[in-house]
Amino acid sequence: MSSKMHFLTDGLVKNNPTFVLVLGMCPTLATTTSAMNGLEMGLATMFVLILSNIVISLIAPVVPDKVHIPVYIVVIATFVTLLELLMKAYVPDIYATLGLFIPLIVVNCIVLGRAEAFANKNGIGASALDGVGVGLGFTLSLTVIGLVRELLGSGSAFGYKLLPGDGILAFVLAPGAFIVIGYLMVLFNKYLKK
């Protein structure tokens, strides 16, 4: 079992989708206006990632090589549609906040990237674990970015007021997203990347 654990932990630091692979930057920049939004977007992506990894690892041996990309995209789009319908039904508030970026999980390069690089040559168990690991890495990055932006932009964390004052609005707006991710990437390069 311990031999398989590294599939789970690789995604957190070594193959971190945001800071190392730099994939899926659109939702990373757009939805991290607060820690909660980042967390929700991360979990939504993880849902699609795990299910599409499982299905693709199962069908990969029978899919002809020439059409594998369109087939994978249809599989991913199916789970994204499923997620959209579930979210609209049970958590309409979250669906409204994340908006366009839920259907856009289809073109998130992380999902297709894991299908191409991992799920199509590994078994179902490893692929599921890989989906969980990379999904957790993505969720963690988004939550941290959201936390920093929320703290600087409005002085609160997960909606709880921590710092006095109104904060610097620019960090919640578009420029803050680029700047916070840029500086977090610097810290990551300096202290975590070996």
């Binding site: 620019a170 420029p175 803050g176 997203a177 680029f178 700047i179 840029g182 500086y183 390069n189």
Partner: peptide
């Protein structure tokens, strides 16, 4: 530590500003 993407992202942030 700033080489490559980090400095590009910060530049983009200033442009967005």
């Amino acid at each position: 530590a700033f080489k490559g993407l980090p400095i590009a992202l910060i530049t983009a942030g200033i442009m967005a500003l």
